[in-house]
Structure formats: C-alpha cells, structure tokens
Simulated scan of single mutants.
Amino acid sequence: MAVARIGISGWTYAPWRGTFYPKGLPHRAELEYAAERLDSIEINGSFYALQKPASYRRWAEETADDFVFSVKGGRYITHILRLKNAREAVANFCASGVLALGAKLGPMLWQVPPNLAFDPEAVTAFFAMLPRTTTAAAALAAETSLDEDRTFLDPGAERPIRHAMEVRNPSFDVPEFTAIARDAGVAIVVADTAGRFPVIRETTTDFQYVRLHGDEELYTSGYTPEALARWAADIRGWLSDGLDVYAYFDNDAKVRSPVDAMALRALLAG
C-alpha cells in the first residue's frame, strides 16, 4: 500500500523556540519533539556542508523506528559543480554518514539553482551515476577523499535508494527532461514556489516528492485551509495511483512549516 509522509525541511530554527517548540525545551530535544508530531523530516544541513557520521547516527537514534529522513544533496554538487564531474563529490556525500541512517534513509534530494539551464547530457550522466541501493552507495562511498574518521561506509542490509530532483529554470519544463527522469527512475519534485519557479507535475517513478515553499509568498507565507485541502486532494490522488508521497513544508520564515505540516497530516488522516 502506498504511503504518504508529511514533514518539514529542517528542524533547527530559532523562531520556532517558544512557538512550535515549548519554551525552555533543550535544543538537543527539538528533533525528538518534532518527530513525535511528524513522520518524516528533510535534512537540509547536508546541503550547506557535509554532516558527520555521528550526527546521522544520533538523528536515527532520536526518532521512532518507522521514521524516515530525506537527505538534501550538497550545493557543492548542484550549485558549484552544476552536476558535472561530480563523482568524487557524490562519493564524499555518500561517505559522510547518510548510510548511518539505516532503514530510516529515505530519498536523496538534488536541488539545482535557477541559473542552471537544462543540459540533457549532464543530467543523464548525473542520474546514471547516482547509487540506487545502499550497497551501491557504499561502493561509491569507498572512493571518497574524506579522512577515515569522517566516513561511514557500512551499507547494512541492502535497501533501495530513491532520488528526486527539484529544478528552478524554465528550460527543464520540457518533455525531454521528463523522459530522462522517467528512464532513470528519478522523481521530478513538485515544487510550490508561489509562482516564482516552474511547477512540473509529471510522474516519473514510483513516488512523488513535494516541496511546499509558500502559497502566496516564497519561503514566508503559510497555507490556508483551502490550499491545504487542495494539496491533500493531490496527495490522495497520487496514493490512489499507487505512488508513495514525501511532502515537506519549507515556509519557515513565519513559523508556519510545522503548523501546516501537522494540519495537512490531519486532513489526510481524516
């Protein structure tokens, strides 16, 4: 049966303290508090810098057995290398500790910048390089240039690894990109960006990945009950088609992400 997981992008935000997080809650307890109210979180610190294996292990330990993390790929890969000649960087990313999440490792997210135009050859080569199982990820991670004390290379039990790409340049909104993603089994993120970036609603694999950045204003506006109802209807449609769904709110500037995520979960449970 297809499953929908609704969560937030990141969990360490000072404005949430005393609003979403109870006043006086220790910072070290914030993940556990959020995970008790949601069933998935998108790790976005990994976008800005490689995280440590000890951090991934701790996050896995602080969440319930059925909790799942999505992990955002590094901006060095997507924004600096721009998907090209990225094998070593992807190996380092895989070696940095993501495998320490074990069964809690969900999709890997690759967000490319608005000024990156669609390059069919580069995208095809990048997708072909991505590991599709934990065993393949460990094999790629073994090529790392990181110091040994910064790596975790144990694949554990072999599990599939899913990948999703969020694009922001209109040149990607063409059938050729959809076909490349479908051939590679990579999900194209359905990104709600208050109309700023393209919305591609194509199903290219066995799951749908949704990022909700703001209904009316990018990164800041919350979602009205009517807007949440529309997204709930979309998610029910994908579920009825047999697709798993991962949906994350990334509209944190006005402390809306966790509130909206819990509201959407309640709608789907009702």
Score class of each variant (00 low, 15 high):
85 N>L: 07
112 V>K: 11
80 I>T: 13
140 L>K: 06
145 S>H: 06
121 E>C: 02
40 S>G: 03
180 I>A: 05
139 A>F: 00
26 P>D: 03
48 Y>Q: 08
177 F>E: 03
116 L>Y: 09
129 M>K: 14
264 L>P: 00
78 T>F: 04
219 Y>H: 01
267 L>K: 10
4 A>S: 11
196 R>T: 14
254 K>S: 12
79 H>F: 05
251 N>P: 13
123 V>N: 11
249 F>K: 01
85 N>W: 10
3 V>T: 14
166 E>K: 14
183 D>H: 11
91 A>N: 12
114 P>L: 04
146 L>M: 15
224 T>S: 15
135 T>E: 14
151 T>H: 07
55 S>M: 14
222 G>S: 05
243 L>M: 07
27 H>K: 13
132 R>Y: 01
144 T>A: 09
197 F>W: 15
33 Y>V: 00
76 Y>M: 04
267 L>P: 06
27 H>R: 12
10 G>H: 03
35 A>L: 08
7 G>R: 00
134 T>A: 03
105 L>I: 05
73 G>M: 12
141 A>H: 03
205 T>L: 01
165 M>Q: 04
40 S>N: 01
222 G>F: 01
193 T>Y: 06
146 L>R: 10
42 E>S: 09
173 D>W: 02
26 P>S: 04
47 F>C: 07
72 K>D: 02
262 M>E: 15
24 G>Y: 09
214 G>A: 09
270 G>K: 08
22 P>S: 00
195 G>S: 06
9 S>V: 04
250 D>K: 04
91 A>E: 08
186 V>D: 00
184 A>G: 07
159 R>L: 12
62 E>D: 15
231 W>E: 00
124 T>Y: 03
134 T>Y: 00
127 F>T: 10
143 E>M: 07
57 R>K: 14
118 F>A: 11
184 A>Q: 04
68 V>W: 03
179 A>K: 13
171 S>C: 06
164 A>I: 02
120 P>V: 06
139 A>M: 01
197 F>S: 08
16 W>L: 01
89 A>W: 03
124 T>V: 05
186 V>I: 13
183 D>R: 15
132 R>L: 01
76 Y>L: 11
209 Y>F: 14
155 P>M: 10
106 G>M: 00
165 M>S: 03
108 M>P: 02
169 N>C: 04
121 E>T: 10
